[in-house]
């Protein structure tokens, strides 16, 4: 493609070659660099799927209204001033079944501390969701989100890849902690201990 160059352009070619190789190197480094890695979160017990947002970097939780599985209207604004555990789930979601008893246990333990639990029932139907609630004796309400509109609003501020995802919202309505995937008793209680603590 390139015939041997005149002598006067050989130096230029060498410079160009170096520039191109450097460019290729940059592209390779950039594409190979691991993504993510923001300084706004710390992990709980070194588990990267359970995080605490550092004070001052807590994203504001979007407000929402919806219909609960029992047909009543629910607005997120009525939870202001409370620590809220918001669990995104679906009756079709296998890991949600695994964590259902854990959530019920943590909800029972933190009820005296004034922590409210609220479910967001994603891509589900009322009949199936209500059967799930009966099966696992879920004692807290869930807002139906068949269209994922509420989930989408939250996805703008925290990376919700799917269900289950559990967010802990502090008294000021900011997201203080998150568990991406199945919650464990120790992770969720560790986050709640921090958030419910004075000044948390």
């Amino acid at each position: 493609m390139l015939r041997a160059l005149p002598v006067r352009t050989r130096r230029r070619t060498a410079v160009l070659a170096a520039a191109v190789l450097a460019g290729v190197l940059v592209v390779v480094l950039v594409t190979a660099w691991p993504g993510g890695g923001s300084g706004n979160t710390t992990t709980v017990d070194g588990n990267p799927s359970a995080v605490l947002y550092t004070a001052g970097h807590r994203p504001l939780a979007p407000g929402f209204t919806g219909t609960t599985l029992t047909g009543s209207q629910l607005s997120s604004s009525s939870y202001r001033g409370h620590v809220v555990v918001l669990n995104f789930w679906g009756s079709w979601c296998v890991p949600c079944r695994e964590e259902a008893t854990t959530l019920a246990a943590v909800a029972g333990r933190y009820r005296p501390a004034g922590v409210s639990f609220l479910g967001v029932d994603v891509r589900d139907t009322t009949a199936s969701a209500q059967a799930f609630v009966n099966q696992f004796h879920v004692g807290y309400p869930s807002v139906g989100d068949a269209s994922s509109v509420i989930t989408a609003d939250f996805s703008d501020v925290v990376p919700i890849a799917g269900t289950p995802t559990t967010l802990v919202i502090d008294r000021t309505g900011h997201i203080a902690g998150a568990v991406f995937g199945t919650v464990t008793y120790s992770d969720l209680t560790a986050i709640l201990a921090k958030v419910t603590a004075k000044g948390g």
Partner: peptide
Amino acid sequence: GQTFADTTSA
């Protein structure tokens, strides 16, 4: 009859 929001979980 269904609605979906264009987000990962949907």
